[in-house]
Design a protein around this nucleic acid. Structure first.
Lengths: 155, 155
DNA sequence: GGAGAGTAGTTGACATGGCAACCATCGACC
DNA sequence: GGTCGATGGTTGCCATGTCAACTACTCTCC
């Protein structure tokens, strides 16, 4: 506690600031673009992607499972689903087995929305993020992300 | 527009998801920690860091300059400063030269808050982010961030 | 079969961000 | 010196996220 702080050296400081800056702008840009072209927010998009994942039968998930997959708070899931339900992108359905529970079902409109939004979104991610990275760099980035996630695991 | 979408391959997809996940959790963790140990949010912290930067005379900046440095919307700066002013961390001061303008001054309490918060915050950034990166990797991460930022520049 | 712990989901209070509209002032130009 | 576009800042409205409390079940164990 009383140890002298090891501040970031200039190289690290630059890298850290660039990282912060990068993320702010990247997400802001992706969000704006998504909003402008398809009326979806990043959060909408993430829900829709989760529901259209290959291993999701019937495009339907329990609330809590959605939360686990996205690593979201349950209240966040609940509110996001409410907003999207109001716009007709998903529907809640009561769970017969567990009367506390609820399913979230993708609607046709939701499917249409993700179909319309995905190509442009992926293209932008590619353009901004992956262009200029070769295979090795993608792998090393992946390793780095994974190693930080490991250190974050003890939540 | 009618071109077939080039979806992300499995490697890219993993890297992208890991990246998203990483950022969510990293920022959440840094925020929680900062909040718990010093009662500051990341946004508070960023403002205080900007005001205590070496090249800032008198720990005082014009609102618009704060916005430029942080790359924040002006309304965001205004609101954040209001909240921090209410807690005594900064003060607004009228600008004599330009009667539209306002300075933001760091208060003693603000200085004390950043002094108290910085060591723990930096230590956590180091522990979570830089540990396990050698100098080469830091540099290559920095280059990557910079290259993406360039592509984002046309905002 | 009933008490109590745990789980699924919702809600309310609050902090935060973005966008657009607004006000006041500045500055350039006639 | 007056007009008009640009600039600095604030505000309101809305979307989003967190945390903590609350409801309603389910499960375990006696």
């Amino acid at each position: 506690m009383s140890t002298t702080t090891r501040w970031l050296d200039p190289e690290e400081s630059r890298a850290w600031r660039a990282w912060l800056d990068l993320n702010n702008r990247l997400f802001a840009r992706l969000n704006r673009e998504l909003q402008a072209t398809s009326g979806l927010s990043i959060s909408d998009y993430e829900i829709l992607v989760a529901l259209t994942d290959d291993d999701v039968p019937e495009h339907s998930l329990r609330m809590y499972e959605l939360g686990e997959r996205l690593q979201w708070e349950k209240s966040r899931v609940s509110k996001q689903v409410s907003r999207m339900e109001a716009r007709g992108l998903v529907e809640r359905r009561h769970c017969a087995d567990d009367r506390r529970g609820a399913f979230v079902d993708l609607t046709d409109a939701g499917q249409a929305a993700i179909d319309a939004a995905a190509p442009g979104h992926v293209a932008l991610v590619r353009e901004l993020f992956f262009d200029g990275l070769n295979g090795d760099q993608v792998r090393s980035l992946g390793r780095f992300a994974t190693s930080v996630l490991d250190r974050l695991a003890d939540d």
